[in-house]
Nucleic acid binder design. Structure first.
Lengths: 207, 207
DNA sequence: TTCGCAACGCTACGTTTCGTATCGATGAAT
DNA sequence: ATTCATCGATACGAAACGTAGCGTTGCGAA
């Protein structure tokens, strides 16, 4: 049963989401206001507030529409290759301003907006991370990766490097950079000839 | 020669910085206002604007005062041990709300405030990162770490994992977690018996 | 001691944005 | 044709912003 009364305008919805993305790309997330979005979209401010609780929700919706299809996990038969591909794609997405600007804005806003943090969590962690976890699990199963690999930590390090550049160091990011991260992590920091001597000799790590 | 006229009140300065930290700890960075800081510090709003350009600068100053001494790089003779110690300390700092709340707020604000981003960059990257870089360099020199190690990338992965938890996944963070990250990175993802077969044609002289 | 000068507290102001309320008009479903 | 929630438009109070003006205060130099 559709609710009685005048249905929400799909035209207005699209105009709002599109205006939101455009404005964020132009002026940055922080500088964008609901009133600005309304004006750009040719829609009354009240119309936006009827459908979304605030700016964060609008931008979140807009980003989801545009970027959902761009991230699928491959399965080439090699964990190294799967990761290389996926991390490259993420790095590429992070360098695309039309994605990165709203995305960074949302991450920043989520630091003081629990509802938004939950939504991002759901989108990024619960669903995306499952793919990476699966890739590593297959790698371990195949004997390609260490059987005692701590998968969550490996993922933290892998994607952490990308997020670190995106949010903290603001150094340039590229697919090649992503591939180098994967390569370094695969090999490990340790010198091969020292693989028996580093720390925790009795591995019990009781400290 | 001190500039003519009444000197700035050191009492007022301390009251402002202290009030800022207290308020951020209580209500979160975003919810804190200059007017609120002024009221709590028992100081006029104009007095704050005379010394700082805005909220970010005040909180930045306050955080610097409180946390500067807590981060020095050790030199135990073992890169593994040095990193374990340092990463543990950072992880501990990230779990201390009186540091983490203002710090996260500043990082969030720096995403749309170039001046703040520059100041954070200077503090975090230029000075802190130099220490980690030095530790790794010594490790390579000693033969403890791979001679072809990409040091900047190793640092990205190491600290990236911590920042990832702090800012993105919001999973709990602890010194033990930091130590596990260091351990996993040292060993690498790769299974020892496969160390010859994983792509990375680039000079992975593993003998 | 006296004087100069800048920081101080206080108050007020114009702006911007927020989120809400109100109102007649509109238009798709029944 | 009737229903009724959405639409655009407008107005509103509440917060903060950052600035300006003004009389007061207190350190340092003459």
């Amino acid at each position: 049963m559709s609710p009685a009364g005048r249905p929400k305008s799909e035209t207005a919805r699209r105009a709002v989401l599109s205006a939101a993305l455009d404005l964020v790309a132009e002026k940055g997330y922080q500088a964008v206001t609901i009133e600005g979005i309304a004006e750009r979209a040719g829609v009354a401010k009240t119309t936006i507030y009827r459908s979304w609780p605030g700016k964060a929700a609008v931008v979140m919706d807009a980003v989801l529409v545009e970027s959902d299809p761009r991230l699928a996990f491959p399965d080439t038969g090699s964990a190294a290759e799967d990761l290389r591909l996926q991390v490259s794609r993420v790095a590429e997405l992070f360098t695309d301003p039309s994605f990165a600007k709203p995305f960074v804005g949302l991450l920043a806003a989520s630091q003081h907006d629990e509802a938004l943090a939950g939504a991002l969590q759901e989108w990024l962690i619960t669903s995306r991370r499952a793919g990476a976890s699966e890739v590593l699990r297959r790698g371990v199963e195949r004997g390609e990766l260490r059987p005692d690999l701590d998968i969550p930590i490996a993922i933290d390090a892998l994607y952490g490097a990308l997020y670190y550049r995106l949010l903290v160091s603001h150094e340039p990011l590229s697919p090649e950079y992503g591939q180098r991260v994967v390569a370094e992590l695969f090999t490990g920091l340790q010198s091969p000839r020292n693989s028996f001597s580093t720390g925790a000799s009795t591995s019990a790590g009781t400290t």
